[in-house]
Design a protein around this nucleic acid. Structure first.
Length: 488
RNA sequence: GUCCCCAUCGUCCAGAGGCCCAGGACGUGGCCCUUUCAAGGCCAAAACACGGGUUCGAAUCCCGUUGGGGACGCCA
């Protein structure tokens, strides 16, 4: 039997890193075992759900490369995959449970319940539904039904232990006495999560439920429902939560939590996937941290998921990003960097055609310094435009008036070079420095500032070679001007 | 308040009774390389929460304490 897993987000927000990791674990498990990855949208809360949010979540999953086998836009044998389109399944199931005696109508109003709960919290602290409506006589129920009094449906929770074997936590047991008679169908006819999730997981033949730790306490309720509807419960694997640096559950307060926000910030999906996979999961003893998506699929196992919560570490994410950027082949890197250049207005189509060799060489040079995709632009913009932005303090420091003559001489030396390539450039510069009794380093720094506007760049000779003789000449002329006393 | 989960360096993990005076990665500090900054290489500091057991022997098993997290909704 092929494993069937699902990711079931509720579209009440964007895909955040916690949800992304849950989705990733499900996806990895499905791919590892050649199973099926189902995407189901849990939009039973009409008030808080929106189609924009659905799109946002799909975008996040697509960006991460987590493709689903059944779900929105991918028909399957167990659809529809939006809970809002499956109401009849839930309603009829709930009525069936009432008919067979495992659930009952509850006519208590929200106000009544709220009052009771608040009163109880004043005194004892905790509160469970007091089963007022469970004790109603058949006549009393019939009377209320006749007057069409609004009612919800509650499950009658039996006392006694409910056990299950969690794939990450092991045996877990809870006593029904600690669980209240929870609502499965609201008075407006909409199902609650507890009902819809069980009905759908059962009908969609889900074999393994991999979800957040925060659902552990829901699991016994759901097991009760599986029993009541006469279905086998799936295997459960409850993944610990992702925490912020303050050890509190990760939330907006901790900065970027939307997966797409990381995309915007220049992170690679490869890096995010690698980072998230290793947050709470480990392949075992291998002392390797960098994985491609395929490698993760090959080594993934639910057994490797640890039991404790994990703190989200942005520094490590950034390191993964740098490593994955460094591993991108040149043409692929070009594709990834293009949007940043476009956003800066520095993109030119011939970077992919006539000048692709030059373009790729520039990216390769900038690569070891790039932590995010935007760094190619912020650190290397002088490659893509002649409008050099000079760092004022760098100019003051390295382009003193004594440099004007040196730079002029260097420009002349460059003009004499038979070929303008790295070793020849270096030789010319060192010779010029010698001849004029300046330290090569001093001249190098001056040229760097003059040509790139910055004190920081890749190796200067590579930079000059890639910029080309004409560009270097123009900038050297400009640098001589900058260094000349007349400028002020 | 009740119930549940968790507990190894600052952080993420390895460790499934002797291989561990605890290993890797990020971060931090130092050195090397060097025209700057990175990258890379090398080195260093840094942890088994505490207390009881069990055992010849415990980071590993059991109990308790403490600490952290989660759930107790006609939210999901």
């Amino acid at each position: 039997m092929v494993p069937r897993v699902r990711f079931a987000p509720s579209p009440t927000g964007y895909l955040h890193v916690g949800g992304a990791r849950t989705a990733l674990f499900n996806w990895l498990f499905a791919r590892r075992h050649r199973g099926v990855f189902v995407l189901r949208i849990e939009d039973t809360d009409v008030e808080r759900s929106s189609s924009d949010m659905v799109e946002g979540i799909l975008d996040g999953l697509r960006w991460l490369g987590l493709d689903w086998d059944e779900g929105p836009k991918v028909d399957g044998p167990y659809g529809p995959y939006f809970q809002s389109e499956r109401r009849e399944h839930y309603r009829s199931t709930a009525e069936r449970l009432v008919a067979q005696g495992s659930a009952y109508y509850c006519y208590c109003t929200a106000e009544e319940l709220k009052a009771k709960r608040e009163a109880a919290e004043q005194t004892s602290g905790g509160w469970k539904y007091d089963r007022t409506c469970c004790r109603l006589t058949a006549d009393a129920v019939a009377e209320r039904e006749r007057t069409r009094l609004p009612r919800a449906i509650r499950v009658k929770v039996p006392d006694g232990p409910i056990r299950f074997d969690d794939l990450v936590h092991g045996a877990i047991e809870m006593d029904g006495a600690n669980i209240e008679d929870f609502v499965i169908l609201r008075s407006d006819g909409h199902p609650t999560y507890q009902l819809s999730v069980v009905v759908d997981d059962a009908e969609m033949k889900i074999s393994h439920v991999v979800r957040g730790d925060d659902h552990i306490s829901n699991t016994p309720k759901q097991i009760l429902l599986y029993r009541a509807i006469g279905a086998d419960a799936p295997q459960f694997a409850h993944v610990p939560l992702i925490l912020g640096p303050d050890k509190k559950r990760l939330s907006k307060r901790h900065g970027a939590t939307s997966v797409m926000e990381y995309s915007r910030q220049g992170f690679l999906p490869e890096a995010m996937v690698n980072f998230l996979a290793l947050l709470g999961w480990s392949p075992g003893s291998a002392e390797v941290e960098l994985y491609t998506r395929d490698e993760l699929v090959r080594s993934f196992a639910l057994e490797g998921i640890g039991g404790g919560n994990a703190v989200f570490n942005p520094d490590k994410l950034e390191w993964f990003n740098q490593q994955h950027i460094a591993r991108l082949p040149p043409d692929e890197l070009g594709v990834r960097v293009k949007p940043s250049l476009e956003a800066a207005g520095l993109w030119r189509d011939d970077y992919f055609t006539n000048r692709h060799a030059w373009f790729f060489a520039v990216l390769e040079l900038l690569k070891p310094r790039a932590k995010r995709l935007g760094d190619f632009v912020s650190q290397g913009r002088y490659f893509f435009t002649d409008e050099v932005e000079y760092d004022r303090s760098a100019v003051d420091k390295h382009l003193g008036e004594d440099m004007a003559g040196h730079l002029h001489a260097l420009d002349a030396a460059f003009a004499q070079l038979p070929t303008f390539e790295m070793t020849a450039i270096e030789e010319a510069l060192r010779l010029t420095a010698d001849a004029r009794s300046v330290k090569a380093a001093t001249l190098i720094h001056a040229v760097r500032v003059g040509v790139t506007g910055k004190t920081v760049s890749p190796g200067l000779f590579e930079v000059l070679a890639l910029l080309g003789r004409d560009t270097v000449h123009r900038r050297l002329v400009a640098a001589v001007q900058l260094a000349s006393p007349s400028r002020s």
